[in-house]
Design a binder for these strands. Structure first.
Length: 654
DNA sequence: ATAGGGTTAG
């Protein structure tokens, strides 16, 4: 007869159990009990053992609990044994030895015990053995649980093993009663989606008799991750009861698909419907604001975060996202204030701030922060090194960059990736060490990609080296044949070397391939925070006439000061007059003219652009900052340019 | 037991 003994409590390895010891109850136990009381005591004992197992973190502790269990005559108690095996799996005890031994001593394993064993084998990578156990379980006539299937589906999803997934799917139908199980259905959708079979997941969803918000959200996320926001939105609209997770999925979906305005719109609706905002929602919205780069929205979302109790001081993830957001909104000083306010900074906070400094050309600040980070004994990761190498590059700290690059693998255990090599090629290339950069590419430990060769090609333009440029271009045209930018760069390099026959050959190649320039556009935040968007030659704006006039006036004043339009920036093989016209219409120039017309004189003019700023526009911005006395901040797809009194923070290299 | 999250180079 199982009884609770004093010994059990006192020798229990776990202090929590000891604290739970109640002498009154023990007195009861020692007196004779009725069968129902015995049953009740047994239940109490079982739950004590289970909670003891919850606290176990090593095999030795589990063995002690096991010893008590045997002492109490519970060697056939599947409930506790299943928990014991799950706990052993959690502490990574090899399932084949100790757990297997326990399992084989049980005469009538229940489905929970079978499932615990199956799960153990799956988690330890023995999928075939788990399938084997499942067959045994079926052959002795034991009915599986929903959980049994979900264990398999989870494993298939993680291993992207759709063929096993389909077999288990067939089993859920074969065994009967599981095809309509909500939990099984949901884990099955997830399995198909993770294996890349979104349509199969959809089919499961469509055939489910009962669906809950989880089923819907799984599919919404799957569509969003697939870049199909239209299907995601359609599902979202149909979803009868939307919870905060579903809302967040759609907001984040837009943010991750580079549609920040829609993300913000949906978030605003979410707030109007008074759905609770939590950290995960905020992170998605903050990322959308970072992409948009508009201060009004940035400040708004920060207020929302703070009033929801997740300000930068409260939550490190929100704080780090805000650092990134303010950097990308052009306010690197504000980013640093937020950074300083984060109570428990982590590697994300530091990396974001280092990248922020690097992006704004404040290389020394970035490197200083990197050293502060090391002092606080925080381990840098691969992104941290991208930030700090970029920073070195922008300040021309070649030797320091070399040392950091060498140290990353040797001292910090971060193996250099293609991205880090790209930074190094950029660093060496900018400083004019083209041969060394080429040598680095040729001896790379990983396969060079288009970015690496692109960095080299960019450096060849600055340092006018057509030979190495040709080599880089050969690789680029193979790796990334439809990227027009590479052809233009090569053209410029040949043109400045006077190699006109090569120029016309490349131009012909571009024509034959029918490569078209990406639609470049710029946007600017007006006084009240509204966004004005411009394409090249755009006349849609209600103030178009004034804008064109202001631009012409500005260019005339610049020309009087010696500005000559830089025709190299136009890739097309057209007449110079036409080129001049095209240059004049570049979207960032229109945005600048609008900014001059309609923003406060003491505020910087902030322009965002989806492509890299061209040389001519860069020159115009420099000149405009001098003539007008206005500070101009431009974010292109690479970095920030702060124009002040005739010069740019990028030092004319970008 | 099952659904949503932050930093990435030319």
């Amino acid at each position: 007869m199982p009884t609770l003994s004093r010994r059990f409590f006192i020798t229990a390895s776990n202090p929590e159990l000891f604290l739970q010891w109640q002498p009154q109850r023990e007195a009861q136990v020692l007196s004779p009990l009725s069968p129902t009381q015995i049953q009740k005591q047994r239940k109490v004992l079982e739950s004590k053992l289970i909670s003891a197992l919850d606290c176990c973190t090593s095999v030795i502790q589990i063995k002690q609990v096991h010893a008590h269990l045997l002492l109490q005559g519970l060697d056939q108690c599947c409930l506790v044994l299943a928990k014991l095996i799950r706990t052993l799996t959690k502490v990574n005890a090899p399932v084949e030895t100790y757990p297997r031994l326990i399992f084989e001593q049980v005469r009538y394993p229940n489905p929970f015990l079978w499932t615990a064993m199956i799960r153990g084998y799956i988690l330890q990578g023995s999928v075939s053995e788990s399938v084997n156990l499942y067959s045994c379980m079926r052959s002795v006539g034991t009915r599986p649980l929903s959980f049994t299937f979900s264990v398999f589906f989870k494993a298939c999803g993680a291993a992207q093993d759709v063929s096993l997934g389909r077999q288990i799917h067939a089993q859920t139908i074969l065994v009967g009663g599981f095809a309509s199980d909500l939990y099984v259905g949901n884990t099955m959708i997830d399995m198909y989606v993770k294996c890349g079979y979104l349509n199969c997941g959809r089919k499961v969803f469509d055939e489910m008799p009962d669906r809950d918000v989880i089923s819907w959200t799984e599919l919404i996320v799957a569509y969003a991750k697939n870049g199909d926001m239209e299907s995601a939105w359609d599902l979202f609209v149909e979803l009868p009861v939307k919870d905060k997770v579903a809302w967040t999925a759609i907001v984040t979906g837009y943010a991750q698909n580079a549609r920040p305005r829609e993300a913000l719109e949906v978030f605003e609706r979410m707030q109007n419907e008074e759905v609770e905002t939590d950290v995960v929602t905020l992170v998605g919205v903050i990322s959308a604001c970072a992409q948009l780069g508009v201060s009004k929205y940035a400040n708004w979302v920060r207020d929302v975060a703070e009033s929801s109790g997740f300000g930068p001081c409260d939550d490190v993830v929100v704080g780090s996202a805000l650092v990134d957001m303010y950097s990308k909104c052009g306010s690197v000083d504000e980013a640093f204030k937020v950074f300083e306010g984060i109570k428990e900074k982590n590697v994300f906070s530091y990396s974001s701030m280092i990248l922020g400094f690097a992006m704004h050309g404040r290389g020394h600040a970035a490197i200083q922060l990197f050293h502060d980070m090391l002092k606080s004994e925080m381990g840098p990761n691969h992104v941290t090194f991208i930030g700090v190498l970029t920073a070195c590059s922008h300040v021309g700290l070649v030797e320091q960059g070399r040392q950091l690059f060498a140290a990353m693998g040797n001292h910090y255990g971060v193996a250099p990736s293609v991205e880090h090599y790209t930074c190094m090629v950029d660093l060496l290339g900018r400083a004019g060490h083209l041969e060394e950069a080429l040598e680095l590419i040729e001896t790379m430990s990983v396969e060079p990609n288009a970015c690496v060769w692109g960095a080299l090609l960019g450096a060849c333009r600055t340092h006018r080296n057509p030979d190495i440029a040709q080599l880089a271009a050969d690789h680029l045209f193979e790796l990334d044949p439809n990227n027009l930018g590479n052809y233009i760069l090569l053209c410029n390099i040949y043109a400045s070397a006077g190699m006109w026959d090569k120029v016309s050959r490349i131009r012909k190649l571009m024509r034959v391939k029918g490569l078209k320039k990406n639609a470049g556009y710029s946007w600017i935040e007006a006084k009240k925070g509204e966004i004005h968007e411009f394409f090249a030659g755009d006349m849609r704006h209600p103030m178009s006439t004034e804008i064109m006039q202001a631009l012409e006036d500005l260019l005339n004043r610049l020309k009087a000061n010696g500005y000559v339009p830089n025709l190299n920036s136009v890739a097309y093989d057209i007449h110079d007059d036409e080129k001049k016209h095209m240059l004049t219409n570049h979207s960032e120039k229109l945005a600048l003219a609008y900014g001059l017309l309609s923003t406060d004189v003491d505020c910087p003019i902030k322009i965002m652009k989806n492509l890299r700023i061209c040389e001519d526009c860069h020159e115009v911005m420099c000149g405009a900052s001098k003539i007008t006395g206005r500070e101009i901040i431009i974010r292109d797809n690479m970095r920030f340019h702060h124009f002040h009194n005739g010069s740019c923070s990028c030092g004319n290299f970008w």
